[in-house]
Design a protein around this nucleic acid. Sequence first.
DNA 1: AGTTGCACCTGGCTGC
DNA 2: TGCAGCCAGGTGCAAC
Length: 286
Amino acid sequence: MPELPEVETVRRGLEAAMVGAQLAAVEQRRPDLRFPFPERFAERLTGQRVEALRRRAKYLIADLDGTDVLVMHLGMSGSFRIEQARAPILGAGAKNSLHDHVTFDLSTGARVVYNDPRRFGFMQLIPRSEFAAHPLFNKIGIEPLGDEFDGAALARLFAGKTTSLKAALLDQTLIAGLGNIYVCEALHRAGLSPRRVAACLACNDGTPSARATRLARAIREVLNEAVAAGGSSLRDHRKTDGALGYFQHSFRIYSRAGEPCARCGGLVRRITQAGRATFYCGGCQR
DNA sequence: AGTTGCACCTGGCTGC
DNA sequence: TGCAGCCAGGTGCAAC
C-alpha cells in the first residue's frame, strides 16, 4: 500500500497511542513476515517504553527506552489498527484477524495490532548506536518534505542520470518515500513526461532548470495534500482508527488509463516502466 | 555502475 | 456460480 503519505498517516496514529506508553505484552503470531522476526522479538520488546514514533522514508521507527530501536515497514498491504480495551472495532471480524501477525498491549489499556495479508512488511530491532550506519538506512535519500528538498537538490541528484524520470523518482536512494502513485501524480502536475531522461532537470551549466523547480514543487504539493487527506485507500490502507484515507478521489492521472486528461482533455495512457504501471497524458506531459 | 526482471505473498476484480 | 488469469501502493537480489 503505502507511500510516504500513508506511512505518515499511520505514524501520527501510532504516535498518539504509543508514545509514553509501555509495551506491557507483545505477541508475535508467526515466525516471519517478509523476513524472519529478530530473535526473542516479543521478549526483547516487553516492558519497554516508547519514547518517540518517527518516520524515515517509508519506515516507521519507534524509539524505545532500552538500547534498541524498533523498525517497521508496511510492505504493500500492512496496516496497524488501534483497539481500545473492551471496545473492539466493529467490522474487524474473523476474516481480517487471520492476518493479524503482531499485537502490542500497551500500559494504557489500548492494543495495537499489525495486519498484513501479503506479508511484504517486516519488523527489525536495531541497536540505537548502529541505526545510522545500518544497511536499511545508510543509503536512503533525501526527504521530499524536508527543508533541503527543492529544484536545485533535485537537479543535483539527477545530474548525469540516463534512466527515466519515473525510475529516478522511485529510487529510494535518491529521494525517500515516493512510490508509484505519487510519482505519476507529481509528473502530471509538473507537466513532465515520465519517459524523459532524469538528467534533463539540470541546465547545461549545471544549474536547476525551470522543470526541476516545477517538479520539486509538484512533489511537495501532492504529498502535502495527500497527508492532509489521510493518504490514499485503494485496497488496504486504513488510518489506525480504521477510517479510510480519501486522497484516492483526488488522483488526476493514476489508474485513469483511457479517460480524458483532466487538464488538457488528451488521452491518459498506461505504459510499463521498470516493471511498474505508469499513467501519463501524452498531451500535456512533455 | 546502472538497469531490468523476477521473486516474495494474498486477495480482489474481470471476463469467459 | 466458478474459476483462470491478471493486477496491486514495495523492495532486494540475480543476471545482463
